[in-house]
Simulated assay, not measured.
Amino acid sequence: MKVTVDQQSCVASGQCVMTADDVFDQRDEDGIVELLEAEPTDDRTEDVRQAAALCPARAIHVER
């Protein structure tokens, strides 16, 4: 799996961090998403896909 984020679309809701905090973080100054792991392990697939689905700005993109 490959994950990318669009920081310009991010609205800093934090849903991604609450769902997969080992893959996503937020910048301290403005809460914008930061990608910690662009190619998470297979055991993280469900959480990463859920984080993408919960993102109100659709700023998370997941490829298989």
Rank of each mutant, 00 (worst) to 15 (best):
Ser13Ala: 13
Ile60Arg: 11
Ile32Asn: 01
Val33Ile: 15
Pro56His: 06
Glu39Asp: 10
Thr45Asn: 11
Met18Phe: 15
Glu37Lys: 10
Asp42Val: 13
Ile32Glu: 12
Thr41Glu: 15
Asp21Cys: 02
Gln15Pro: 00
Met1Trp: 03
Asp30Ile: 11
Leu36Gln: 07
Ala52Gly: 07
Val3Lys: 00
Met1Asn: 01
Arg49Leu: 15
Val62Phe: 05
Val48Ile: 11
Ser13Trp: 13
Val62Gln: 01
Leu35Tyr: 13
His61Gln: 11
Glu63Val: 09
Arg27Cys: 04
Val5Ala: 02
Cys16Glu: 03
Pro56Leu: 06
Gln26Lys: 01
Arg58Pro: 00
Gln50Ile: 07
Leu36Trp: 10
Gln8Ala: 14
Val3Thr: 00
Ala20Cys: 12
Glu34Lys: 13
Phe24Gln: 01
Asp47Val: 12
Gly14Ser: 08
Thr19Trp: 08
Ala20Ser: 12
Cys10Trp: 11
Val48Cys: 09
Asp43Arg: 05
Gln50Glu: 14
Glu46Cys: 00
Glu39Phe: 10
Asp42Trp: 09
Asp22Ser: 13
Gln7Asp: 06
Arg44Asp: 05
Arg49Thr: 08
Pro56Ser: 02
Ala12Ser: 15
Glu37Ile: 14
Val23Pro: 12
Ala20Thr: 13
Gly14Val: 04
Gln8Ile: 00
Arg27Gly: 00
Leu36Ala: 04
Val62Ser: 09
Asp30Val: 07
Glu39Thr: 15
Gln50Gly: 04
His61Gly: 01
Asp30Cys: 08
Leu35Ala: 06
Glu29Ala: 08
Ala52Tyr: 14
Ile60Leu: 06
Thr4Trp: 11
Met1Ser: 01
His61Ser: 10
Thr19Arg: 12
Glu37Gly: 04
Arg58Tyr: 08
Ala53Met: 06
Val33Asp: 02
Thr41Lys: 15
Phe24Ser: 03
Ile32Asp: 07
Gln15Phe: 13
Ala51Cys: 01
Val62Trp: 10
Met18Ser: 14
Gly14Met: 07
Ile32Trp: 08
